[in-house]
Design a protein around this nucleic acid. Sequence first.
DNA 1: AAATATTTCGTTATATTATAACACTACCTT
DNA 2: AAGGTAGTGTTATAATATAACGAAATATTT
Lengths: 131, 131
Amino acid sequence: MKNKKNELTKNQKIVLDFIQKSNKPVKAYSILSNVSKKGLKAPPQVYRALEKLIEVGEVHKIESLNSFVACNSKCIEPNGTIFSICKSCDQTTEVSNADLAKFLSDFKDMNGTQFSGFNLELFGTCKSCKA
Amino acid sequence: MKNKKNELTKNQKIVLDFIQKSNKPVKAYSILSNVSKKGLKAPPQVYRALEKLIEVGEVHKIESLNSFVACNSKCIEPNGTIFSICKSCDQTTEVSNADLAKFLSDFKDMNGTQFSGFNLELFGTCKSCKA
DNA sequence: AAATATTTCGTTATATTATAACACTACCTT
DNA sequence: AAGGTAGTGTTATAATATAACGAAATATTT
Ligand SMILES: [Zn+2]
Ligand SMILES: [Zn+2]
Ligand SMILES: [Zn+2]
Ligand SMILES: [Zn+2]
């Protein structure tokens, strides 16, 4: 047994709170400077919180942006993530499409072996950038 | 008209050559140290070559590894990439599966708008790591 | 409750990845 | 030859991420 009280710690909550309030993916050092008044003063404190938050599924990393977003809690597949990213403003939303998620989860390689996880990043232009 | 002689430059060829000879994704600074005897001595020289090689489609960046691979020249979709990545050794192969590529290219968002590009990274365990 | 193990914390230093800026060169186009 | 574009070499620095270590907090066992 690992952690009877399965709650986030203070630092983890502070970081998650900031990410959830952001409407775009946020960078680690942006998190750091924005929560420094709450006591987090060095990169490891932020990166450690992020690591945990990602582990428990509250946060995802947007690899192509080196940035972090809160899970919209519509993750369909536990080990797969799908994002829609605006090429012009980086606005990012988690895509929940059952067909797509199923297609990806069920996908097998040449040998018929299934994958254990996936990350799909779809690039386009968001509504406000089109206008 | 851009470039009548549509060839790669010396530096670009050196970098591409090294990437093609590698059997795994390679990191920029690993490229740098490996081609330094051929005259490339500073990061910008490598990153500029990479930028061009990516632009012309000879090289892809593996975002989750901050590494680079040569295109296996089986890119089905011009603006979409699909990779299979071993979680344990980082061995990476470009996946060419017409059904999957078509599914992703045709995928539309809630508003029915098509995306202009995508990158899919599939995670699993490679043959040799399973053994 | 006390002892032990585990996890988190704060901190300093450093590693890794990537780009800005600038003067200069090579080549293509007219 | 003149002008434009792309590439080069170089120095410096920005941006992203982790190693290491001892102290503090929390959980588990005795
Ligand atoms: Zn999610
Ligand atoms: Zn946008
Ligand atoms: Zn390719
Ligand atoms: Zn492997």
